[in-house]
Nucleic acid binder design. Sequence first.
DNA 1: ATGGTCTGAAGGAACGTTCCGGCAAACGTG
DNA 2: CACGTTTGCCGGAACGTTCCTTCAGACCAT
Lengths: 333, 333
Amino acid sequence: MNDSRPITLQDVARAAGVSKTTVSDALSGRGRLPATTRERVTAVARELGYVANRSARNLRGGRTGAIGLYFPARTIGLEYYMDLAIGAAEEALAHDLALTLVPTTRDPGRTPPLHIDGAVVSDPVLGDPMLETLAALRIPVVTCERDLTPGARHAGRVESDHRSGIRVLLDHLSGRGDHIALLCPGEETSFGLDIRTAYRDWCTATGREALVFDVPFVCDPEHVSHAVAEALRAPGGIDAIVSVPDGGATSAVHAALQQGRHVPADLLVASYVDSPSLRGLATPITAVDIAPREMGRRAARLLAGILSGGIAPGTVEVLPTELMVRASTSPTG
Amino acid sequence: MNDSRPITLQDVARAAGVSKTTVSDALSGRGRLPATTRERVTAVARELGYVANRSARNLRGGRTGAIGLYFPARTIGLEYYMDLAIGAAEEALAHDLALTLVPTTRDPGRTPPLHIDGAVVSDPVLGDPMLETLAALRIPVVTCERDLTPGARHAGRVESDHRSGIRVLLDHLSGRGDHIALLCPGEETSFGLDIRTAYRDWCTATGREALVFDVPFVCDPEHVSHAVAEALRAPGGIDAIVSVPDGGATSAVHAALQQGRHVPADLLVASYVDSPSLRGLATPITAVDIAPREMGRRAARLLAGILSGGIAPGTVEVLPTELMVRASTSPTG
DNA sequence: ATGGTCTGAAGGAACGTTCCGGCAAACGTG
DNA sequence: CACGTTTGCCGGAACGTTCCTTCAGACCAT
């Protein structure tokens, strides 16, 4: 067995006693071939361990065979994005595409050449220069969540139904919580915007006062502590806190404890973004599962479909969310 | 300006009045060309916005133009790996290589074809089937940290000097802490092994009792709470805790508080793995900066060098660590 | 002048794939 | 049996690069 040189179409053709065209057709399902030939050739190819050369295929097809994944620098470290990346990589691979990480450009304007057929941009942030760069290069983009840039048009989009997600969470809390504070990031992403809007609407509809406290998208425990302290000083009192960002709720529980409030005995605490670390706590925290891995998968699948022409550009998919009720908001404690 | 078709070498050649060979030579620095021609051609290329077709280059050169990045599934969500990935992507791009995420194979044995020239494996875990797969495909591997598999030989390695890192941390604590507990993951990675070994050696050398408590590599607050509770029940008492894993120290402080111990007043707490979330706390936590981004960069650079022949296979680089002293172990509190 | 070396540049093959066109043989229909 | 049509397969061009070979001319020393 001589594995010094990779097996090519020609090698398979010779071994099967046919031409390289026939091998190509047999393996790709194209052309006019009887099932017998197709199977015979396929068997030979498998036998020899043939694996198509991607560079040649890409050159011939005028593609790069890769899609990019981009998220803003500040999101580093959030479990959500890591999980999304894995999902996107899995799905891309299933479509014979490589998933290439696109690093945040350190000095804007000097973007290195991007050799990708398309890009997944997770949580586009208002004003991010990479969005312009991708548009200038005419690289098809699928966004995870909406791009709030005025006039922005992308090839596709997957969005979570955050409005419904937060409503379900609020409904769940409303039984025992009359004064529900929301710790939420700003309106430079559709994520923050939608949640704030839905929260305010829900408050209006149920005749409550909206109590919104700003925390950064990527938030330190310190930020959460401040917001919790401020919330607990609210005139009418607070009996429930919804901490929106990834990783914030743990700190919220901690901060509440320091303020003398016990969860869930005299204060309900829920996270919006769920993560494994919320499950393992002594008092597990209720959260909404916004399915990051599925988000990555769907975005990659959508982009792959658009690139191959199977899915119409402009398609929007909505991802359902699921409330995970845990001890931090349960009556029994 | 007609940008319907990308600019090729031929286009530049025509525009500059030379042959495609000359353009290729001029841009690559190869061949025998006077500086004048080189500059003229380069100018024309820049003018036209020529960017080399990677598929063609890769096909010709017999490469894929990409390197893979792999880490075990369980590490998802750790800030360390996300940061490492970004560093690797940056450096790969600087070497004209794409960084492709290699997802953990869901069913082992059926690995999809990997179209990469080499791979960075961060924290190889004893028994991970991907290591075999890469070896079988003869894909050069640079590991971050050592591969403990007996007989394993890789193309290169970058390792942090954890032994020295933990010693420096212990020396720092030894002024006020006589009974130092170590919360550490197991010995299936060189990371856990080295830290345990160095800790035990240090304890022997300074005449202390070694107090090691197992926590998982990826650890929930729950795990940490248990370990802390157990540690605080140690016969001789405990006056300092070193929590090794990423993200564990915050929970350790929390758990200690619940046991009635205050940090740093009557208990010192330090993390081994540093992360941004340790800095922002009310009582920031002392930790060792093990420079994940630099680790990613170095690994990618080393792999790129080995692939291009500029660096000899078998090269090992050691990354220094730096102790970051913060309030959680400071005398003044 | 003659032969040799060096310089600057060009031609063309090769990398492995896809796909267009073509061409026999088999098959149908009158 | 003659003549279209379909079936099964193949040759070869093209994708854009790199690099090996060639080659004309300039330059030098004899």
